[in-house]
Amino acid sequence: MASNHSAEPALHAGISQEEHHDHPNLEEMRTFGFWIYLMTDVLIFGTFFAAYIVLRGNTNGGPGPAELFELNGIIVSTFLLLASSYTCGLAVLAMNKGKKQALMVWLALTAILGAAFIGLEITEFTHLVQEGATMGTSAFLSAFYTLVGTHGLHVCIGLIWMVAVILQLASKGITPVMKRKVQTISLFWHFLDVVWIFVFTVVYLMGVS
């Protein structure tokens, strides 16, 4: 379990008092709660994956995965997202060293890579719709758009959240609260990366093969 305890007592001004009182550590609880949330999100994705696996053969006479997907673009987006996960990790390292400027830069870079990923996804979806492969074409496409789209939606929410965190860092600096916030967004971001690996494998790789 990720812990928020840090070696620098100076940063714990607000919390140290509580710990004297035998209180549970608030920020640690929040991180723990976020882990549980992530698990519930796994189940939501799991349900969409299950629906996709059940329905992917039901193409209703329309185009199937092999005809629709172009792996090249997808591989580029995969690399973008993987790279963003890496920069997000660098951001947390910078934070642990107390380097606010570096932290903000790495986070901003993560957000830019994420935005590029979303851009590519939107391009892909528009392209598919122009080819006539829409949500209503077949059960396969309904499941495809829902699964991939839900991941995209998560990334979008993550982007807004990340911008909010960067702005707060600018004004508040690296406080215990901000540390926890950066920890959670980075958890979320890595989580989305893992989900994407599954999407990439189940939807795209297994689709074209």
């Binding site: 059940v54 329905l55 039901n58 074409t137 059960a139 309904s142």
Partner: peptide
């Protein structure tokens, strides 16, 4: 419920009788 909503709102075919729904 999200899937049922998509069926009803966005014309998806998760649980419909047509379009390959189940």
């Amino acid at each position: 419920l999200a899937l049922l909503f998509l069926d009803r709102y966005a014309g998806a075919h998760f649980f419909t009788l047509d379009g390959g729904g189940n």
